[in-house]
Amino acid sequence: CGSDLVESRPALEAFTPEEIYQRGEVELADGDAEDAAYYFGEIERLYPYSEWAKRGLIMQAMAYHRDEDYPNARAAAQRFLDFYPTDGDAAYAQYLLALSYYDQIDEIGRDQGLTFQALQALRTVIEVYPESEYARSAILKFDLAFDHLAGKEMEIGRYYLRRDHYAAAINRFRVVVEDFQTTSHTPEALHRLVEAYLALGLPEEAQTAGAILGYNFQSTEWYQDSYALLTGQGLSMEASGDSWLAQIYRQMVLGEWL
């Protein structure tokens, strides 16, 4: 069926770039983002060297993004960054580029590949345009995407734990504790390590994990679970063995985390 507008799009050669830009803004205001993107794109095609072409390009990226047409939004944002890297709106273009990956995560929740791209694009916003108004919300979204990656590691770790493949599970949970320690999954990862090491018959490791959990996440339910599990097995919560204690002291008290 296609969008009805295609036939009725007048030949725009006769209009000035400003008129086309205003037409685009009207469409955007009417909530018809797709047509707005078309008009803004036409300015760039017909008058590539006009001042309106630059403004049209960033508006085109924003319109496509609002229309949830993420691939086109990325293409337009990238073109803006190629031509006008130093422009005031460059930060917004980079942010739009990152958002076009990030917003797809909800739609394609399960896919890891996309999350990596979102993280890289968000990191560019944070590092290249730290003072821009978008840096702060990019950091927020970066943490959420990062949390999502940790969630996938946990999902796979639990898959193996449930099937008694303890070594495989431990490796996944260790990745979360080491590479994703700022995410919301770390307390659970530590508790799962307690469970897995106990099941394997390595109580000292279980105690070490429990101790780190105890020190950093005392208020979480995971800590209660580990506490019950360890004490239930007649093991105390402190890490046993001398040299480990020294290391745990260095990490937890001095904050050289894992």
Partner: peptide, 15 residues
Amino acid sequence: GRVVELERRVTDDNL
């Protein structure tokens, strides 16, 4: 090895 009762609760991945 020790028989361990796995915790049912899961951290929500808000997806």
